[in-house]
Computed example of a mutant assay.
Amino acid sequence: MPDHRFPDGEEFTSYPLDELLTPLPPLRPPDDFAEFWRETYVELTAPAGEVRIERDCSAGGRSIELISFRSSSGGRVLGWLVGPGDRQPVRRGLVISHGYGGRELPDPLQVADNAAAIFPVAPWLPINAGGLPGSEHVLIGIGDRYRYAHRFSAADIWRAATILLQRYPDAAACLDYRGGSFGGGIGALALPWDDRFRRATLHVPSFGYFPIRLSRRCTGSGEAVRQHLLGHPEHRPMLDYFDSTLAAAEISIDVQVSAARTDPAVDPRGQFAVYHALAGTKRLVVCTAGHAEFPGEAEQNLAVESAARRFLAADDVDELPPIIEL
C-alpha cells in the first residue's frame, strides 16, 4: 500500500478494505432531486445544433475526427468522433468522458474494433477555449443549482450521445458510458435520466457522499469546495443535487465501479459509496490507489482497462465475478 501524507505528516484517505466494503448510512436526497434532474434532461438534452468537423485525425485504419458542437452551457466545446474502418460495421457505441485534467487526444485503444465512440471535452475544461483547472471549474455557478458547472457537464454527456448516434445510428443498440474521476462522478449524475445507455464503467468516481467529501482536506477539486464553504456555508445544500452517491441510487443499468483503497484527491469512502448505492446489477474492481504514483501503477491501469473492456463486452455480466481485487 503506498504511503501518502501531507507535508505536515498527516496521513490522508487510506482505509482498510473491510471498512470500505461496509456501506455507509444512506443519504437523504432533496425532495425534488429526481424532478430537478428530469427537468434538466428535458431542458438541456436538445440536439447540439451544428456539429463542425474541425480536423481529420484519422490514423491506424480508424476514422478519427476532431469536432466542435454547441454545449448546454451556451458555448462551443470540442470532442473527437472515433469510428471503425470503412468496411467494419458498427455494433456498439461509447461515450467516454475524462478527468479534471481535461483531454488532449482520444484513446482509440478504449474503443473495440466494432465500436464507435465520442470523446467529449466538458465545458470550461482544458483544450476548450478558456479551459480552467479543476479547482476553479468546480466553483463555477456554485450556490445556484441551475448555473452550476456540473449540471452543464452532465447535460453535455447527453448531447455527446446524440451526436454519436446521429453519425453512427447502429450504435444505439448497444450504447455504453465510460468515465474516470471527474468523468466518473459526472457519469453517475447523467446516467439515471437517459435511457439510451445500456452499461457503464466508473473509475475512481468523484463527487460521492458530500458529508465525507467535505470532512477532510484533499489534493483534488473537493478541497476548493471545502474552502469555499468556510466562507459561504449557505451554498452547502445545493451540493446535494450533485452528489454522485444520490444519483447512483437512481441508476438501474449494469455498472462496474473501480474504486481505490488509497486516494489523495477523491476520498475512497466516497468512491465506494457510489458503488454501494447503485440500484442495478453492479460489479466492483478494487484498486490499490488512485490519483497517485506508486509501484505497480502501470500494471494496475492495464488491469482496470482489461476489466472494463471485459465488463462491457460480456454477454451476461452475472457471469463475471462480483468483486475483483487488484
Rank of each mutant, 00 (worst) to 15 (best):
Phe36Tyr: 12
Phe36Gly: 03
Trp37Lys: 04
Arg38Met: 05
Arg38His: 09
Arg38Gln: 11
Arg38Gly: 02
Glu39Asn: 06
Glu39Thr: 05
Glu39Gln: 10
Thr40Val: 04
Thr40Ile: 01
Tyr41Ile: 07
Tyr41Trp: 14
Tyr41Thr: 08
Tyr41Asn: 04
Val42Arg: 13
Val42Thr: 10
Glu43Thr: 13
Glu43Gly: 01
Glu43Val: 05
Leu44Tyr: 09
Leu44Gly: 04
Thr45Arg: 15
Thr45Asn: 15
Thr45Tyr: 00
Thr45Pro: 00
Thr45Leu: 00
Thr45Cys: 15
Ala46Trp: 00
Ala46Thr: 14
Pro47Leu: 07
Ala48Lys: 05
Ala48Tyr: 05
Ala48Cys: 09
Gly49Ser: 05
Gly49Asn: 06
Gly49Tyr: 02
Gly49Phe: 02
Gly49Asp: 05
Gly49Trp: 03
Glu50Ala: 13
Val51Leu: 06
Val51Cys: 05
Arg52Trp: 01
Arg52Ile: 14
Arg52Lys: 14
Arg52Ser: 13
Arg52His: 10
Ile53Thr: 15
Ile53Trp: 01
Ile53Met: 12
Glu54Leu: 15
Arg55Val: 08
Arg55Gly: 01
Arg55Phe: 00
Arg55Lys: 14
Arg55Leu: 09
Arg55Thr: 10
Asp56Ala: 08
Asp56Ser: 07
Asp56Ile: 12
Asp56Arg: 07
Cys57Met: 14
Ser58Asn: 03
Ala59Asp: 12
Ala59Lys: 11
Ala59Gln: 13
Ala59Pro: 00
Gly60Thr: 04
Gly60Ile: 05
Gly60Glu: 10
Gly61Leu: 09
Gly61Trp: 09
Gly61Val: 11
Arg62Gln: 12
Arg62Cys: 10
Arg62Gly: 10
Ser63Gln: 15
Ser63Pro: 01
Ser63Lys: 15
Ile64Val: 15
Ile64Met: 08
Ile64Pro: 01
Leu66His: 11
Leu66Cys: 06
Leu66Ser: 09
Ile67Lys: 02
Ile67Glu: 02
Ile67Gln: 03
Phe69Cys: 06
Phe69Arg: 08
Arg70Cys: 08
Arg70Glu: 14
Ser71Gln: 09
Ser71Thr: 10
Ser71Asp: 05
Ser72Glu: 07
Ser72His: 07
Ser72Ala: 15
Ser72Arg: 05
Gly74Pro: 09
Gly74Asn: 11
Gly74Met: 12
Gly74Cys: 11
Gly74Glu: 10
Gly75Trp: 00
Gly75Ser: 11
Arg76Cys: 03
Val77Ala: 02
Val77Cys: 04
Val77Arg: 08
Val77Asn: 03
Val77Gln: 07
Leu78Ile: 06
Leu78Cys: 02
Leu78Lys: 13
Leu78Trp: 00
Gly79Val: 11
Gly79Phe: 03
Gly79Ala: 12
Gly79Lys: 08
Trp80Phe: 14
Trp80Val: 13
Trp80Tyr: 11
Trp80Lys: 06
Trp80Ala: 07
Trp80Gln: 07
Leu81Ser: 02
Leu81Lys: 02
Leu81His: 03
Val82Lys: 04
Val82Trp: 01
